[in-house]
């Protein structure tokens, strides 16, 4: 194994071990997410006549699952940075010639575990409300492709927040608001074709809307707004661009850290 492989091994081992040691927090997080989501889902279902529940349920369910990828990246990568910086881990990792970026990306593992676990439970709630058909998927490959692209984007976004928190204070509320708004304006909750035209033009420039269209195509065969090929192309380019920017941003921020020192600012 090369040095880098040993490092990746160490990072994965660390995050999984911490996940186990903080098991009560982990369970609490999952429960909290599910309960909040159920409150809003039940509220939103009250707007729909009961006979149409089974039609809208898969869209809402997958919207929630996709939103969770975004939310956990923001909080488990971006939000964790505050702890990471304030405990002096930036320096301790730099001293071992390890950039803090892969350690923070490793937190995606924790986020992913929470997303998957809570998504399964939300799916159960939906099954109870609308029947088991809600879980059916037309083409699992497109769903997987959409989720991988979405994940790349959300992890990159989490890293932007992490990098920014080395320099400025990011109000936690602002992150929550951005998350909330992304649910609707980011095209996660609703197919682009169903959005009112003004909202749709905003959604089209938010990156997440495009992999979300691919996921919905895979789930129920809903034709993506820009066409399947175009959406795949756009999503891939945007995901790669976002990841490259995250890499460059971290390089820049580490140079900044060496010049001005580590300042624990992070989330406010």
């Amino acid at each position: 194994m090369t040095k880098n492989a040993t490092r990746i091994h160490a990072i994965v081992w660390l995050h999984l071990l911490r996940l186990w040691r903080y098991k009560f927090s982990f369970l609490n997080n999952i429960l909290t997410i599910i309960l909040w989501l159920t409150i809003f889902v039940l509220g939103a279902l009250m707007f729909i006549p009961k006979e149409q529940w089974s039609l809208m349920a898969p869209i809402a369910l997958w919207g929630i699952i996709m939103w969770q990828f975004l939310s956990t990246s923001v909080w488990y990568i971006g939000g964790w940075t505050w702890f990471f910086v304030s405990q002096g881990f930036v320096e301790e990792h730099l001293l071992t010639n390890t950039s803090p970026a892969p350690v923070l990306v490793g937190r995606a593992l924790v986020g992913l575990t929470i997303t998957v676990s809570s998504s399964l439970l939300v799916a159960l709630v939906f099954t109870g409300l609308t029947g088991p058909e809600v879980l059916l998927v037309d083409n699992i490959l497109y769903v997987a492709l959409g989720l991988v692209l979405l994940c790349t984007m959300t992890i990159s976004y989490g890293l932007y927040l992490a990098a920014l928190s080395f320099r400025i204070g990011i109000p936690g509320t602002l992150l929550d608001i951005a998350n909330f708004v992304s649910f609707i304006l980011g095209g996660l909750a609703v197919p682009l074709s169903k959005l009112p035209p003004q909202l749709r033009s905003i959604a089209l420039i938010i990156p997440y809307a495009h992999p979300a269209e691919i996921v919905r195509y895979g789930v129920r065969g809903l034709e993506p707004y820009l066409g399947l090929e175009t959406e795949i192309l756009v999503s891939t380019i945007v995901a790669l661009a976002m990841a490259t920017i995250a890499y460059l941003l971290f390089k820049y921020i580490l140079r900044h850290v060496r010049r001005y020192g580590v300042r624990a600012i992070g989330r406010m």
């Binding site: 939103a44 279902l45 707007f47 006549p49 809402a60 909330f180 649910f183 609707i184 609703v190 169903k194």
Partner: peptide, 11 residues
């Protein structure tokens, strides 16, 4: 959030 979702999904 609730109103927007509700309006898009139903009435």
């Amino acid at each position: 959030l609730l109103i927007a979702l509700g309006m898009i999904y139903g009435s």
